[in-house]
Structures are given as C-alpha cells and as structure tokens.
C-alpha cells in the first residue's frame, strides 16, 4: 500500500465562533486521498469546523482563530490563513458541499459552468466536455444528460446533491469538504452518494461531517469525534 503524503495539518488550532469555543489547541495531520469522517453531538460546531478549511466562516464574521492550518494545494503545503494566500484561490481549490443541496437557480448546464465562469474561462468546448465528464463521474449523465437546460431546482434532492458535488469537482479540487451531504436524502440517494465518494477516494481528500455511525463504518478511513474542543480518533 502506497503511503500518502499529509494533505491537511493543523498546529495548535483554537477556534471560537460567535463567542462559543469550538476547538482548543488541536494538532492534526491527515493523509491525502482518504475519507475522514467527523462525528459528534449536534450543535457542537462540526459544520463550523469544516468551514475553517475554506475560510467560509469569515463570511458570517464573529469568529476568532489561532494557530496554523496548512493544506496541500498544488503539491505543496500552504498556510491558508497567511495574508498572501488569496481567499478566492483557496476556495477554488477546496470544494464544499452542504447539508441541503444548494444548486443555484439556473439551468443544470449553467450550474456546472458557474465555477469556470468565475475563473473567466469562456471556452465553450472545454466547459461542455468538462461538464459531461463530471456528470458522468457523479452518475448523473444518464439521468439528466438530455435536459441540461432544465432548471436545476427541479431535480430530485439526491440529483441536486450529486449535481452540487459535480459542480464542486469542476475545478478538480484535491480536497472536498462535505457537511452531512446525505442527511436530506432518502436511503437510495444516500447510497449513491456513498458509492460516489468511494470512487473519489485516492484522488481526493474528503473531510466529511456525518451523523450516522453506519455511514462511518461503510466508507470512512478515519473517524474523529468532536468533543469539548478536541478531536478524538475513534476509527
């Protein structure tokens, strides 16, 4: 078995959000290409914890972070909170999928093209091939390939969520943050997403918050429980 390099590491990471302590001096080193699950009682800040890694919490303000967070981006470890590293670049390299699917109110094709549009990529051919590739990857191509111009909000919940994952993958992220991606789906949708995550493993580091112990058993390589500001390894 090949050894994977470290993809995510933290040093002395403390984080308070909205006056509530979430993390206290956490040291962490996670290898690339694994699926890492994070569990813990609800309301303890698991979702907020995820948003540390793409700095999304900053959009809502009122948080304080100390310590270091390093991610392997483009082959080298970078401190994502150092000033020189641009926020938009970080977020384009670290994908995030939310608890409830959040396709934008536009067509499926436009949803997929949106990340590229943000990068000022206008090459139609590239966008189309890329979109198809990603749709195939999330097994959506057969289901919606014939109606790419339909509004994305009309898809079923499971389809929407897979579309969101595909949208996140459009930029070929190496790190994917998933915030309970299956909690709003039925069992069938849930299993399909899990299968998809299995396939992504090896090429993508996946950090996933989940409620379900059985899900952890099925797909996670590692599991941490967030308790009292610490991450305790349970798997």
């Amino acid at each position: 078995m090949p050894t994977f390099p470290t993809a995510i590491s933290t040093q002395q990471l403390s984080f308070r959000y909205g006056g509530v302590p979430i993390l206290h001096e956490v040291d962490l080193a996670l290898s690339a290409g694994k699926i890492i699950a994070i569990t813990g009682p609800s309301g303890i800040g698991k979702s907020t914890l995820l948003s540390i890694f793409n700095r999304l919490w900053e959009e809502n303000g009122d948080g304080r972070l100390q310590g270091q967070v390093k991610l392997r981006l483009d082959g080298s470890m970078v401190d994502i909170y150092q000033d020189a590293y641009p926020l938009d670049t970080l977020r384009r390299k670290v994908g995030m999928v939310f608890q409830t699917p959040n396709p934008l109110p536009m067509s499926i094709a436009k949803n997929l093209a949106f990340p590229l549009r943000l990068m000022h990529i206008k090459d139609k051919g590239l966008i189309t091939t890329k979109s198809e590739e990603m749709l195939r990857k999330v097994h959506l191509l057969d289901e919606v390939g014939d109606r790419l111009q339909a509004n994305a909000t009309q898809l079923s919940g499971g389809q929407q969520q897979r579309l969101c994952i595909a949208r996140s993958l459009m930029l070929e992220q190496e790190i994917l943050l998933l915030d309970e991606p299956t909690s709003s789906l039925d069992r069938q949708g849930c299993l399909r997403i899990e299968a998809l995550l299995h396939e992504l493993r090896g090429t993508t580091t996946i950090l996933m918050v989940t409620h379900y112990q059985d899900q952890v058993q099925r797909i996670a390589d590692l599991c941490y429980e967030l308790r009292e500001g610490r991450l305790h390894q349970t798997l």
Binding site: N54, L56, E59, L87, D88, T89, L90, R91, R92, K93, G95, M96, F98, T100, N102, P103, L104, P105, F114, P115, R117, L118, C164, R167, S168, L171
Partner: peptide, 20 residues
C-alpha cells in the same frame, strides 16, 4: 444557501454581486 454555494466556489465579492 445560494450565497454559500457561490462563496464556497471562490467567487470574489464583485463576482458574487454581479452573478448572484
């Protein structure tokens, strides 16, 4: 949720404004 989607895809503020 739209804002999260657009933010997490790395939109700069002006892009967020114009596109969303």
């Amino acid at each position: 949720s739209y804002c999260h989607a657009v933010d997490s895809l790395g939109a700069r503020p002006m892009q967020k404004l114009i596109y969303l």
